[in-house]
Amino acid sequence: MANETLDGLKVAILVTDGFEQVEMTEPRKALDEAGAKTRLVSPKDGNVKAWDFTDWGETFPVDLALGEARPEDFDALLLPGGVINPDTLRTLPDAIAFVKAFFDAGKPVASICHGPWTIIEAGAARGRRMTSWPSLKTDLQNAGATWLDEEVVVDGGLVTSRKPADIPAYNRAVLELFGSARAEPREATAE
């Protein structure tokens, strides 16, 4: 992954309480190490609390409130899973509009585990090849997607993965896909 350079790439990571900790921290670390600028976007103010496999995990500061986040200010979107996080996000019109805006603009999106629930709700699953946590198979099929039991599935500007054990392959695919949307070099501004 060291050969991927994402300098200047701005990535929104949409979460609320209950996201699977490793599904946010490991991809975020890979993106940051490749030079991307990641920001936690949330409908919650202050902090969000992760889920760590079987119990509550660490707390993370929210970088940007969802109500203030503008999809046009980002180059790519990361959707961690967990059960609680995407189940809550898919009920929030602002969160769904945020996700839909990335698909409408043709920007790359990465989602793992239960994260595809928000993609379904945004109307962006139809006609795509996707994977997810196995319990979402029927949900994705009912939304018009072709579900595959593979560690990573890339379909155009979307990369999906099944579970934490798939994160090494997921991270490689995310870096490659997001690299295709590398931001144009920006002029340095005087501060």
Rank of each mutant, 00 (worst) to 15 (best):
E150K: 15
S42Y: 02
A76G: 05
A36G: 09
T88N: 08
L158M: 09
E20L: 13
N47E: 13
V154Y: 01
G35Q: 02
D55E: 12
E150A: 15
L40D: 01
W117Q: 15
D155E: 11
A36T: 10
N142E: 15
G82N: 05
I13F: 00
K44F: 10
A143Y: 05
F178C: 06
E68N: 13
A190I: 15
G18E: 08
K37H: 14
T91A: 10
L158I: 14
A125D: 08
L140I: 09
F98K: 08
I84E: 07
D94M: 03
A143S: 07
G144E: 09
E23T: 05
A173N: 00
K29C: 04
L89I: 11
Q21W: 06
A181K: 04
G115D: 04
E23Q: 05
I96L: 12
E150R: 15
P80E: 06
M130I: 11
P61L: 01
T59G: 09
R126K: 14
W117K: 14
G115H: 03
E20M: 12
S132G: 06
F60T: 11
M24K: 06
K163H: 11
V41K: 08
K137N: 10
N85P: 00
L79S: 03
G157I: 12
L40R: 08
A36Y: 14
M24P: 04
D166V: 13
G157P: 02
G123C: 12
Y170D: 08
C113N: 01
G127R: 09
E176R: 11
F178H: 03
E33A: 11
M1I: 13
G57D: 05
R172C: 00
T131R: 04
P116F: 07
A97H: 05
L6I: 10
W51K: 00
R186A: 13
D104M: 15
E72F: 07
K137L: 13
R162L: 14
A183H: 14
T16E: 04
L136K: 02
E58A: 12
K100L: 11
P164D: 03
P93N: 09
F53A: 02
R70V: 10
T131F: 12
A169V: 09
G18V: 13
